[in-house]
Design a protein around this nucleic acid. Structure first.
Length: 589
RNA sequence: GGUCGCGUAGCUCAGUUGGAUAGAGCAUCUGCCUUCUAAGCAGACGGUCAGAGGUUCGAAUCCUCUCGCGAUCACCA
């Protein structure tokens, strides 16, 4: 039971005793900085039930609380706000209970299990900044859900089939001269991506040739021979043509190797990969079931639809007239398959907001089909990452490549670190590792601190900041704390039972208290941004403490021990919260 | 056109049960390295919370309308 619940009960009691009224609501909020107090009772809403002035009511309740609760040392009333001051002992007790708790803030794993899907790339081109946002969000939300007591499985569905990969394959056959990642020294995904661009170039040339021949644009685009060949290749693939399937396997493997390298650099991972080549036929039997249950209906041409106009949506196709599956069919089938595979009660889909409509429809269909877990599906919908020049487009080469971006961040971290020159005694390898931690920390924090729903405008010219509300700022604070702990060569483990807290210390403990509820809130909202902002607040308060209060230099032994303990606890929470964001923290920087 | 999302300081963003004088960082300007790491601290400057109505003791927050930006409404995925 937290303070608020206890106080709430006591306020009810007070009002019952003094005014003989049963309160409907008791509202608290943190006390504003300009007033003395820790927690504030808002008395306005009570005035509906109690006919008196807000000030008199506040005074009466305050008086009662001070007399009946040992944790409350004093109070003051400003207008309708009863500011309550909690005793130092209350904070010391809390601090004593959390300081050595290595899983402070986290909820033990319970019954609920959930699958988080993220990344889900196509295999015809390398990962770019948009995927980076997706990966960071998905990974972090998975970690946050774990910390809130869920069993979590991370997955990606790899879009390994379709016309797009055939385009790369065809271009490689035509123009590749048997180039491989080994012979070219190129990362596999980059190599395959190059051929996707080459296909597009050749295709455009053919289209303009056909246009010059007098074809309409529509005709030219549909009739370009190279496109026809790619479509033919897809047909062969679907028919299981040996040669095509071999090439497909080879080139996809190059891409997977390349992706794996990028994932490793990014520090994300998956418990299970689903491949579209395995799942694209799933869902057709569900369509048959849905037809029986009359959730779906068949049109004259044989195509199958669902009518969602009563739900404010449109009619949506779930099976083509030729009996083949569409995107929706596949997603229905895959969802059901995953529940079978992992016995999960819910799923989170990390997919851009351009697919809001698709997921709204998908979830609704699954609900109409009668799956009880359909209520626990969540589309983690995030805004696009745009460049100052507009949208990123792979085919036009206006993308920020994930690998390049990571390298640039590392280089910036290196440059700043070298200028500051604080790393005496570190080997070259240790330094490189540190630059990666800092560079990636800057990038991850930059992306995760903003509300997922918002679009991000990324300007490659202006590099990501390393000062202020940034990853490195928080990492730096962590490193400072570790430096103090290294220097504190005495036993500071004994709990401090009595101590007079100063303002900075008290503020720090208050901020530590917020960590558990912040995790729960972040999990509920699927928002790493809440964790990022919480950590930033904590770090700001600590830096103010650090700069204004002597820690190791103080004479008083109790004071010294307490301050070291407090610093350590803050460091532990920084590390813990940054783990939820997938960001590492350095011992020095 | 229908639907969904967004609009807060010059820029990037917080502001989640409606609460007190709307907060940070960057940028600009002042101070602070002889004491635990200055990627820091202390401070100044900066606001029509897109606009207009409404609900309420009280609205950046809830409702309605308007404007702006984006997405989406494919037998593509």
């Amino acid at each position: 039971m937290n303070v608020q619940d206890i106080l709430s009960a006591q306020v009810n009691e007070a009002v019952k005793n003094i005014f003989d009224v049963d309160l409907e609501t008791v509202e608290f909020q943190p006390t504003r900085k300009d007033f003395e107090g820790d927690i504030t009772l808002v008395t306005f809403p009570m005035l509906r039930q109690i006919k008196t002035s807000p000030v008199k009511l506040g005074e009466a309740i305050g008086q009662y609380l001070v007399e009946n609760n040992k944790d409350i040392s004093k109070f003051n009333v400003v207008q309708g706000f009863l500011n309550i001051v909690l005793a130092d002992q209350f904070y010391l007790d809390f601090f004593g209970s959390m300081k050595d708790n290595t899983s402070f803030g986290k909820t033990p794993e319970g019954e609920q299990s959930i699958m988080v899907e993220y990344s889900s790339p196509n295999t015809n081109k390398p990962l770019h900044l948009g995927h980076v946002r997706n990966n960071l969000l998905g990974y972090s939300v998975a970690e946050i859900l774990k910390a809130s007591g869920k069993k979590v499985y991370k997955t990606q569905i790899i879009n390994d089939r379709g016309i797009h990969i055939c385009k790369s394959m065809l271009a490689w056959q035509r123009f590749g001269n048997d180039e491989t990642p080994e012979t070219s020294g190129l990362k596999g995904d980059k190599l395959v991506g190059n051929y996707y661009v080459k296909f597009d170039k050749a295709y455009k040339e053919e289209v303009s040739y056909l246009l010059a021949q007098g074809k309409t644009e529509e005709e030219a685009k549909a009739e370009a021979p190279i496109l026809k060949d790619a479509q033919e290749m897809l047909r062969k693939w679907e028919a299981g043509d040996k040669e095509v399937v071999e090439l497909w396997k080879t080139m996809n493997q190059w891409v997977y190797n390349g992706f794996e390298e990028t994932y490793q650099k990014l520090g994300v991972d998956f418990d299970k990969n689903y491949y579209e080549s395995d799942t694209y036929l799933l869902g057709k039997n569900v369509v048959a079931e849905g037809l029986e249950k009359e959730v779906f209906y068949r049109k004259d041409d044989g195509s199958v639809w669902i009518d969602l106009t009563a739900d404010g949506l449109d009619e949506k196709i779930v099976l083509r007239s030729d009996g083949t599956a569409v995107y929706m069919t596949q997603d229905i089938g895959t969802a059901i398959q995953r529940v079978k595979d992992f016995h999960i009660n819910g799923m989170v889909y990390t997919v851009g907001n351009e697919q809001d409509y698709h997921f709204k429809v998908l979830f609704l269909i699954l609900k109409k089909l009668g799956y009880d877990w359909a209520d626990n599906l969540y589309h983690l919908s995030y805004g696009m990452v745009d460049l100052p020049t507009g949208k990123m487009k792979s085919r036009e080469g206006t993308v920020v490549d994930a690998d390049d971006l990571i390298d640039e961040m590392n280089a910036t971290a290196r440059k700043i670190s070298e200028e500051l020159g604080k790393l005496d005694g570190y080997s070259a390898a240790e330094k490189d590792e540190l630059y990666h931690i800092i560079g990636l920390g800057a990038l991850k924090y930059y992306i995760l601190k903003v509300d997922p729903r918002k679009r991000i405008l990324f300007n490659p010219e202006e590099s990501v900041d390393f000062q202020g509300n940034t990853g490195p700022f928080i990492q730096y604070t962590y490193a400072r704390i570790q430096s103090i702990l290294r220097k504190a060569e005495f036993d500071y483990s004994q709990p401090i039972l009595a101590y007079n807290l100063n303002d900075k210390e008290k503020e720090l403990i208050k901020q530590l208290q917020l960590y558990p509820e912040t995790i729960l809130l972040a999990a509920e909202n699927h928002s790493p941004a809440l964790i990022a902002n919480y950590t930033y607040e904590l770090v700001k308060v600590f830096n103010s403490f650090y700069q204004n209060v002597t820690i190791l230099g103080t004479e008083d032994e109790t004071e010294k021990k307490f301050r070291v303990q407090l610093s350590k606890a803050v460091g532990d929470v920084i590390k813990s919260s940054f783990e939820l964001l997938g960001i590492q923290v350095p011992e020095r920087m």
